[in-house]
Structures are given as C-alpha cells and as structure tokens.
Design a protein around this nucleic acid. Structure first.
Lengths: 224, 224
DNA sequence: GGATTAGTGGAACAACTGCTCCACTTGCTT
DNA sequence: AAGCAAGTGGAGCAGTTGTTCCACTAATCC
C-alpha cells in the first residue's frame, strides 16, 4: 500500500510531505478552526484558534501564512459539498423539486455554520480562492434553472442572479436569528420559494446584472 | 421669544443647558456621525468621527460617554422616522397598499443608510435604547396587518414576526450589494411581497415565536 | 474686566488584532 | 547513537480600537 504522504496524491492541503508531528498539528489546527468558526463565526482571532488547538501561533502561521489561507483551507471541504449539492439537484428527475431541495440545502449549510455563511456570501476577499469552484456550480445551476422553467414550474423571469441574492437574504436572517430562533430562515425561504412558482408570477423589479452580483460577491468597489 | 435652551423644552438630547460652544460641538459631532455612519457603516472608529468633526476625542466622549450612546443619539431621528412610517401606512385607505409601501420604505431606509441597517436589525445591543419606540410601532403594525388580512389581500398565515425577518433578509442583501448593485434589494423584496399575497398562499414553515424574534433583535443568548 | 468653572484637545492606556523573530526541541536519516 | 534540518512555542511588534487623564482655554455671570 502507498505511503500516506505520497507526493502526487497528497490529500489536497500543503502538498510536500510534512514531518509526522507537523502534519498532525496542521490537522489539529484545521479541525479546531472548523469547530470554532462554525460556532462563533469568522471573527475569532487567530491566536484564539492556536490556543484552542494547543499549538503556538507560529505553528499556525507557518502552515497558513495568512489568516485568509487558514479560512480557505478550513472551508475547502464545505465548499466542495456546496458544489456537489448542485450536481445532486441536477440529478433529480423533477427539476423544480431539485431546485427547491437545493436552495433549502444550501441555506441550511449557512444556518449550520456561522463561518461558512460568511465565506459564501459575505465579508472578505477570501472568496477569491473559491472562484473556480463557484464558476463550475454556476453553470450547473443555470442548467437546473432552465429545466425547471422548461417544465413550467419555475417562473420565466427568474434570473440566475437571484440565487446569490437569496443566499444573501438568508445570511441576513441566519446571522440575526441563529441563537434565538434557529429555524427562522425556513420561514423566509418558504415565502421565497412560493414566489418563485410560475403560477404566482407578477411583474418584478429587474435583477442586478451578473457583473454586479459578481462584484458584490467579491466585495469589490468597497470604499477604500 | 423663548431661549433655545429652555430647560423643559430642550430638544431631546442631553437636556441640561450646555454652554453655547458645547452645544455647537455636540451638534457637529452628531451631524458628522450621521454622515459617516450612513456612508461607511457602524464600524468607523470613534477617533475618526471626532477627527472629521474637528473636535478632540475627549469632547466626543464627554457628550456621549460610550460609543453606543453616540450611535443611539445619531440614529434617534431615523428611528422616529421609522416609527412614523408605520403611522402613514396605517393612514392609507388600502391597507394592502399601505403594507407594501411601508415595507418598501423601511427597506429603502436600510439601503440608504449603512449604519441604520445595522442599528435596526443587526449587530449590537444599542438596540435597547429604542425598545420603547419599537413596541409602539409593533402595535401599529399589528393593526395594519389585521386590516390587510381583513380585506383579503394579505395571506392569513402571515405573522407579525415575519416583518423583522424581512428586515433581516433585506439587511443581508443590502450589506452585500450596496456598492455593486444598490437596487438588488428591490428584487428580493418584490419576490417576498408577491408571496405575501393571499392568492399565492401555500403552506409554510411555522414562524419564530415573538419571544424568539425579540431575543434575536436584542441579540440575546449570544455565546458569551 | 475678572473670576469661575464648564469645556477643550490630544497624548497616553489597555486590550486587542494579524503576524514575525528566534532560541530551543524533536523526528527522521544514517 | 548522533547530527541536523524541520518544526516548535511564546515573547514581542506594529497596528488597531474604545476610553481616560489632565494641563490648558474661553464662555458666562457678576
């Protein structure tokens, strides 16, 4: 059997074979970060994470030269799960059902992980690290929406760009209510989904352009 | 004519007659805070505000002993405008139209003032200062909703508690898109309003309880 | 016009952040 | 068993933040 640190098949991450204890520490930091970010959100200090992981700050920073690197590494898995969700939705024979399930699933991911909600729609330019991932699922999403429209369930004027908007709305609800009313997001999502049904369709304001949404996601043009 | 600093009719604020220059400075700080918070959001430093107002930090802190006091004083006016909005909505002969106009107006207030969006639904316990105000408008809102339901326009299962939820959703959209797509919130609000129409009504998840929403607004039970 | 006192600016503080330095320890190779 | 690079922890840096201290200034009252 192959050595675990086989260079070409290294488990994502930093790549080059680390010393055993170093790899252990790296993993410890990542796991701690996952827990802490999920519970307390992205604004936990780096020192705090190192402390909780039982390693020195230097160790953390050697492995993740920048705070953003740590964040990116921490959420890489969830980011993949996020992308996979759209593939599964696409596999549903009923595209409308696939769409609804997808939205609910993604919103739940935001609700369940405070840090992930931030990474996905809000805050920092950490976002850049996941750009490619995002593009891939954007295409799949387009496909799903087209199909749902084709079967006459999703309203025709639903725009691709509406999806990130929903996620942003959900993020707002979720960050405000997580502690006191952890299921509140379901209610708002419920309303929204009903308004996406073709039969409910009434005229709407125009959606933002794709470029606008992209810039919003990347938090560009923020006052410097 | 009465002196401007007549004790009993002092213009809200600190009350006791300040020295003329002190009052001038106080006003200068408030005006600066209004501008800066509106443009840059609530996380501008106190020092920065003092600098921009052309006063020393001590002057600012003498007048507003705590950062939260400054925030509360800064948004007192807008908070009143927010309450007035519901009264106007109530005056509309068509309660459904009043409701829609109200929601749009309040959401726009959030969109137009970065700081106000935070004060209203998100962040800090500054909220406490406006508790009473909030209760007053909550009652008026209840009245409006009842009327809109009575004329058969608003769906029966619409809950009082849904309104803050909408504001939170709007806050999420608005904080993410303000710079890149400043009108995006209209789109989401458009969807939501359509789903509130009685004819669109489909079963929904339960709303959070009033207590839950209250706690969410006050940001209680946050992990200490 | 002069005393009194409210009011002032800005240096400094303590607590925090992301991050770096460096004297030491420890896993791996031979 | 020994040597050495890879790896370590934690003090400390430079940058924030909200807030306080205090020697000075000037509006108000007589």
């Amino acid at each position: 059997m192959a050595k675990e640190n086989d260079e070409s098949t290294a488990p994502a991450s930093s790549g080059r074979n680390l010393r055993a204890d170093a790899e252990r520490n790296r993993e410890r930091v990542l796991e701690t970060a996952r827990e802490v970010f999920a519970e307390l959100g992205l604004d936990v200090s780096t020192n705090e994470i190192a402390r909780r992981a039982g390693v020195g700050v230097a160790t953390l920073f050697r492995r993740f030269p920048t705070r953003d690197d740590l964040v990116a590494a921490t959420f890489a898995d969830k980011m993949h799960a996020y992308s996979d969700a759209i593939d599964e939705a696409l596999a549903d024979p009923d595209p409308w059902n696939g769409f609804c399930t997808y939205m609910e699933r993604v919103c739940r991911m935001q609700a369940d992980d405070r840090g992930f909600a931030d990474v996905l729609t809000m805050t920092f330019p950490t976002a850049k690290a996941f750009e490619e991932e995002r593009n891939r699922s954007a295409n799949a999403l387009g496909e799903l929406l087209d199909r749902a429209k084709a079967v006459g369930k999703l309203r025709q004027d639903f725009a691709h760009q509406d999806v990130p908007l929903i996620l942003m709305a959900n993020a707002g609800v979720v960050t405000a209510t997580r502690d006191a009313a952890p299921d509140a997001w379901r209610r708002i999502l419920g309303y929204l989904l009903q308004s996406f049904a073709a039969e409910a369709a009434q005229p709407l304001p125009d959606p933002p352009s794709k470029g606008q949404v992209y810039r919003a996601l990347m938090r560009l043009s923020q006052t410097p």
